[in-house]
Amino acid sequence: MLNLVSIVVGLLALPFVLVGVVPYLGAVNYLAVPIAIVGLLLGVLSSRNSGRNFNLVVLILAFIRLWAGGGIL
């Protein structure tokens, strides 16, 4: 059950990450990172790995975009 909730939270964070890839909208990733971290924590508590891995991918994409835009020092 937690795996399904984790995937749903990751799907909630994914549109923010995709919008954040657009130039001048990278600050949206600051909203996506906490959502993906919550999904990651739910995925860690789950017995399966798919929700955790999905949220890791979403989180890595958000961090790469923030790093490329100079948002993470």
Score class of each variant (00 low, 15 high):
V33Q: 00
S6Y: 07
I72R: 01
L2Y: 09
N53K: 12
V28F: 10
A68I: 09
L73N: 10
A68C: 07
I72D: 02
V33F: 00
V44I: 15
L41D: 00
N3A: 11
I72F: 04
L11F: 14
G69M: 09
N29Y: 04
L31Y: 02
L73M: 10
V9Q: 08
S6E: 05
L61V: 11
V9M: 14
L14E: 02
L25K: 04
N29C: 05
L14H: 00
L66Y: 02
L56I: 14
G43D: 08
A62W: 03
L4N: 15
S50H: 03
L41G: 14
V8L: 15
F16S: 00
I37V: 07
L12A: 15
A32R: 00
I7Q: 13
Y24G: 00
L59V: 11
N55T: 11
S47P: 14
L41S: 10
V8K: 12
R48P: 08
F54Y: 14
A13F: 03
N55C: 14
N49K: 13
P15W: 02
G20D: 00
V57H: 08
G51F: 05
A62V: 04
V33P: 01
V8F: 15
L25T: 06
L73V: 06
V21H: 00
I37W: 02
G69R: 07
V28G: 03
R48C: 05
L18R: 05
V5P: 07
S50L: 09
V44S: 05
W67H: 12
S47H: 14
V9G: 09
N55D: 10
A13N: 05
L45Y: 13
G43Q: 06
L14K: 05
A36F: 02
V5Y: 14
I7K: 13
I72W: 11
V28E: 02
N49W: 12
V22K: 10
L42T: 05
L59Q: 06
L56F: 12
I7W: 09
R48F: 11
F63E: 07
I37R: 00
G39E: 06
S47D: 15
A62H: 03
W67T: 12
G26W: 04
G70A: 09
V38G: 04
N29M: 04
V22S: 01
N3H: 10
L73T: 08
R48A: 15
V57C: 12
I37N: 00
I35V: 13
L2C: 13
L42M: 08
V33R: 03
I72H: 03
V33D: 01
A36H: 02
I35L: 12
A36S: 13
S46E: 05
N29F: 04
L25V: 01
M1C: 15
S50K: 14
P23I: 02
V33M: 08
L31R: 03
L61S: 14
L61K: 04
L18V: 10
S6M: 08
V58E: 07
L2P: 08
P34A: 04
V33T: 02
L59A: 12
A62N: 03
W67K: 00
I60E: 08
G70P: 10
P15K: 05
V58H: 05
F54C: 06
V22G: 00
G70R: 13
N3D: 11
F16M: 15
Y30T: 00
P23R: 07
N29V: 02
Y24S: 12
V38T: 11
N49D: 09
I35Y: 06
N49S: 11
S6T: 10
A27N: 08
S46I: 10
I35G: 01
V19P: 02
R65S: 12
